[in-house]
Amino acid sequence: MSDATGGDETGVENWRVSPDTNGRSAYVESQIIMTTVQVVTPFSLTYGLFLMFHGADSPGGSFQGGAVMAATVLMIAFAFGVAPTRDWLRNRTVVALAAGGVAAFAAVGLVPVLFGDSFLAHPRFESVFGIDTKWGLEAIEVAGVAPIVAGVLVGLFFLIAAGMNPDDQTPEARPDGGGHDPERADEGTDTETVSGGDRP
């Protein structure tokens, strides 16, 4: 370990994967990736929905379903650019999904409390409303856990991806503290093509 840090002083040269060295945005518009994602997206979204809705009767469940649906959104963002995807799925939607999931979960759990039972006592639905116990569990899975997982994952992704395009970010927040090379001028046009590209 100690000799390794000694080597860092001399042999290391910094290079970036980010826009600064190659003068173009980290997003690359690729026909192959966009076409592949267009083909795969309906299937993966359907698979996520299947996992969520059918989790009570087969392996899977809302956590897995929510994660697969969030991964579908991430895939779309990788193919078509993060900025258009974020404009399409606004921050408000993502936060509303997560907050609404917690609220729905708590609401389903509190209904039995209204009738003098304990929190999340699903059999109460059967004795009071004649609804099968199963639907109490399904409501938690579909309205509670899945939106929370999907919302938080997509939100985290947008959060980390923010600042990927130069106009998303204040100069101080840039990794190198501001522009210094002439290639930076080209990035403005790159951003145009990113946000002007096909919207998903």
Partner: peptide
């Protein structure tokens, strides 16, 4: 993609 990546020796 948003951070420096050091080329290891």
């Amino acid at each position: 993609t948003k951070t420096n990546r050091t080329r290891p020796d």
